[in-house]
Design a protein around this nucleic acid. Structure first.
Lengths: 155, 155
DNA sequence: TATTGTTATACTCTATAACTATA
DNA sequence: TATAGTTATAGAGTATAACAATA
């Protein structure tokens, strides 16, 4: 029994990996400090929250604590993030972005967005509007999937 | 100078990694033989072309030959693909999907599409139409990026 | 000499299991 | 005992560089 959301699902599975591969290549390849996508997202999150913990990063990215730990390790090792102790609870980390981190993040975002823009320039106005609407809707749908405690819905 | 494609580009960079993370988790996590996304795409391509070479896989996925080689290695090791020599040109491989490979591929696709459908079920009809249109447009735009010889446009 | 694929090596990303330190 | 984070280990996925075999 085909549902109205089946065709969109098929299309998503077809298109998203291709777009992702492009984003990844841009992120890694584009000059200077090649940031991976998860590194980039971690920087964005740490900057936005200012002083988040390791657990915060893990939750936000949907990672296990060891994965988040290694990810942050890499960023600290490259001087893009500082890892400090919290005063009240000495188990807890206080992660902050450094000026170089902020610079690297902005550079990576700019480069990647410019590359995406270049490609999207081939689309007509109606297609561009569809892309914006679709991305907004997908962000909502998949954001709600991670926040409410679950991790993978009804496991 | 902001162009009409800049906002869509920003949204793509925001939404696509989140969706991709979900797809990846479904692919890997869902029962039996957990296929990774690139493994899945490789199976799809090998089945579709029937007897493609390593270079064909590398081009299609946008990978370097060593990466494609390792990817195929894994699939051969798990009995999902056979690697034979070509009769005319003995440097060239002839890759074929096995029955188990076809089964694994179909299972992974079904599971993942069902999971995606479940999430997309939360969207209204207008949003679903936008998703379908957007994915079709993105597929075209990013497919043309890889085929015409380049790999990364004006490098 | 050019093309096809492979091996060696290395790095990122991710997970599970076992551990430490603090609460 | 429970929580925050780390270390150890392992495997997928990717790249570059150096190589082998074939054309």
């Amino acid at each position: 029994m085909a549902k109205r959301e089946d065709e969109p699902a098929r299309e998503v599975l077809d298109a998203v990996p291709a777009v992702m591969r492009f984003i990844r290549a841009q992120m890694r390849g584009h000059r200077a400090l090649g940031l991976g996508v998860p590194q980039f997202r971690t920087l964005v999150y740490i900057e936005r929250t200012g002083g988040t913990s390791l657990g915060g990063v893990a939750d936000h990215l949907g990672l296990t604590p060891p994965s988040a730990c290694k990810l942050v390790d890499g960023l600290v090792g490259r001087g893009l993030v500082t890892r400090g102790e919290s005063a009240e609870d000495r188990r807890r980390l206080t992660l902050e972005i450094t000026p170089e981190g902020a610079r690297a993040m902005a550079a990576a975002r700019g480069e990647t967005q410019r590359s995406l823009s270049r490609i999207l320039g081939a689309l007509d106005d109606e297609e561009l509007r569809s892309v914006t609407r679709a991305m907004t809707a997908l962000k909502c749908a998949f954001a709600e999937e991670r926040s409410p405690a679950n991790g993978n819905h009804r496991a």
